[in-house]
Every structure is written in structure tokens, then in C-alpha cells.
């Protein structure tokens, strides 16, 4: 008994790291932290106003949160939940992407028609790039050479040369492009169009359109099928597309671009995050205020977890 005591103390000092999913609650100004092992909310962290985009640094020692209505990106210590400092972000940051160098953040400023590039070390804005109206989706290619901004009212994916911070191509897509995602191998770019109801797949090398994916669900009005979030399985075999007020995810075969399945989730499903082992997928359901947990292999929902009001973004840490 006595011998065991120092060991217990040691454990308490450095709590065992359980995998977590961090959910930003847009209308509660909080983050809900979900324990992947118990599938319960283990912590709720207060952050700035209207938190949306959320992303971890490469080593998971920091978490960045777009506090849209505070016009800042907050840097948070994921262990303590304390806000370490704010980063300049330009006005109304909504979504962002972290460059593979773990240093530069590419931020879409929804109200300003610009993409802001922030150095997280010097905490300075190093570039602002003019893009179309209502920039929203942000992605950086795995090789770090291309950044993408989608602009919702201009209906384009803007291709940014990361070295010069200038646009080198602009691709028209269907109405209201919401999200852009590079495949893990960097060969393809997927862009979701919320009002167009489609996902466009581009060949990154040529910026040529490879495919346009459409969705059809029996009993759901076509105009309710509004693709937003996109996540790929680590092997780039299947894409999960969040379909907004259709309250479903689509599972798309990434080779054939066929929709193989629809998975019923909560209301107005927005973004998603895989658990670190990629066996579970967590969806943010804005209207129902919860997170649906999907068994990826079974393609079925296994649990709903109540979080804050209007959950928006999701990010995982091991």
C-alpha cells in the first residue's frame, strides 16, 4: 500500500493522455472536449466570441481557435485549457489551415474578401491576399506549396502560390463553396458547394476538374442536400461528406467517385474529425447541438453526445 503511493502521485501529476475530440460551439463561446475512450464530454473550455475553425499544432502542444466575432485566433494550451495568447487574424476569421511547416496559419477572413497569412512564432501577419467575396474554405497542400481559399459568393477555389503569396489559378465551382480538402497524397483537391449541392474534385497538378459528385437521398428534398465538411480516411479510399440540413453523411468511394452510403446523423451536420486511430468519426450537428459518433467500418452512428450550442468545428488529438 505504502509502496504504491508515489506511483499514484506520479500519475496524478501527469494524467494519462486519452485521445480527445475538441468541438467548437459557435453560439456558446466554448469548446467541448470529448474523451474518445468514454465518449463523454470531459471538459468545457471558455474561449472568445463565436469560435469556429479549430486546429492542433503538429505536436498537439497548442490548439488554435478562430474566435470569429473577437476578430482573433486564440492559442490555447490543450492540457490546461488556458488561453496562452491571441494571434492577429484579420477581421472575422472563420476557417484556417496550418502549413506543414507548423508555423504559418492561412486564415479565411469571411467579411473582408482576403486571406491572411500569420506567422505563429513572430505573431505577425506576413501577407494578405485578395480573394473573392466571403472567403471560407481553407486548405494547404501536404507538400506545403499550394494554399486554397474558397469564396462563397464568388464561387471559386483560389489557388495560392505559397512561396510568392499570389494567386496562380481560379477555378469556378458550383454555388457557395464551403470547404476545400487535399487528399493525403496531395494529388487531388475536393471542394464542396453548399447551395450547388455538389462536390468538385480537381487534379492538383493541372487544376483540371476530374469529377463532380452529386447526391440523392430518397425522402430528402434536393435543396436540403448541402455539402459542407469533407474528411478522407487515412488511406485515401473513402471520403465522408457532411450534407448539412439533409442530416446525413455521404460515404464516397474516392476511386470511382460513387456515393456508396448515407449515414443518418444529427441536424445540420457541418464538420467532422476522425479519432486518432480513424475507427470513429465525430460530426458536429449545429441545429441539434450534439455530436454524432460514427463507427467508420460499420458506417453507422453509435452514439450522440450533447455539447454546446451550434457545434461547428472538430479536431482530434491523440
Amino acid at each position: 500500500m505504502r509502496l504504491a503511493l508515489p506511483l499514484v502521485l506520479a500519475l496524478a501529476a501527469t494524467p494519462p493522455m486519452a485521445a480527445e475530440i475538441w468541438i467548437s460551439n459557435e453560439k456558446d463561446n466554448t469548446i467541448s472536449v470529448i474523451d474518445v475512450a468514454t465518449l463523454e464530454v470531459s471538459r468545457t473550455i471558455e474561449v472568445g466570441k463565436r469560435p469556429r475553425g479549430i486546429i492542433f499544432s503538429r505536436d498537439y502542444s497548442k490548439v488554435y481557435v478562430c474566435a470569429s466575432d473577437s476578430d482573433t485566433v486564440q492559442v490555447i494550451d490543450p492540457d490546461s485549457g488556458a488561453v496562452l495568447h491571441d494571434l492577429p487574424s484579420g477581421a472575422d476569421p472563420e476557417q484556417f489551415a496550418l502549413h506543414p511547416d507548423d508555423r504559418l496559419l492561412y486564415i479565411a477572413n469571411e467579411n473582408d474578401a482576403v486571406t491572411t497569412v500569420v506567422d505563429t512564432e513572430s505573431r505577425a501577419v506576413i501577407a494578405q491576399i485578395n480573394v473573392g467575396v466571403e472567403p471560407e474554405g481553407m486548405a494547404v497542400s501536404p507538400d506545403g506549396r499550394i494554399a486554397i481559399t474558397t469564396s462563397e459568393s464568388t464561387n471559386m477555389a483560389h489557388w495560392i502560390d505559397v512561396e510568392t503569396h499570389t494567386l496562380f489559378a481560379n477555378s469556378l465551382v458550383d454555388q457557395r463553396p464551403r470547404h476545400a480538402e487535399f487528399t493525403h497524397d496531395g494529388a487531388r483537391l475536393w471542394v464542396s458547394s453548399e447551395i450547388g449541392g455538389t462536390v468538385t474534385v480537381f487534379d492538383v497538378a493541372t487544376q483540371a476538374e476530374l469529377a463532380k459528385i452529386r447526391f440523392e437521398i430518397a425522402g430528402v428534398r434536393a435543396e436540403q442536400i448541402q455539402p459542407v465538411g469533407i474528411r478522407f480516411t487515412p488511406d485515401d479510399k473513402f471520403a465522408f461528406i457532411a450534407l448539412g440540413p439533409a442530416n446525413r453523411l455521404a460515404v464516397v468511394n474516392m476511386e470511382t467517385f460513387e456515393v456508396e452510403d448515407y449515414v443518418l446523423v444529427g441536424r445540420r451536420v457541418w464538420h467532422m474529425a476522425f479519432s486518432p486511430d480513424a475507427r470513429l468519426l465525430f460530426t458536429t450537428n449545429g441545429v441539434s447541438g450534439d455530436v454524432t459518433v460514427i463507427d467508420v467500418a460499420a458506417r453507422a452512428a453509435i452514439k450522440s453526445i450533447k455539447v454546446g450550442r451550434f457545434p461547428w468545428g472538430a479536431a482530434a488529438r491523440p
Partner: peptide
């Protein structure tokens, strides 16, 4: 103004 900012790219 919305149209013009798209027009810039085209």
C-alpha cells in the same frame, strides 16, 4: 460590388 470582385478574376 459582389459581381465586381468576381469579375476581377475573370
Amino acid at each position: 460590388a459582389d459581381n465586381a470582385s468576381t469579375g476581377v478574376f475573370l
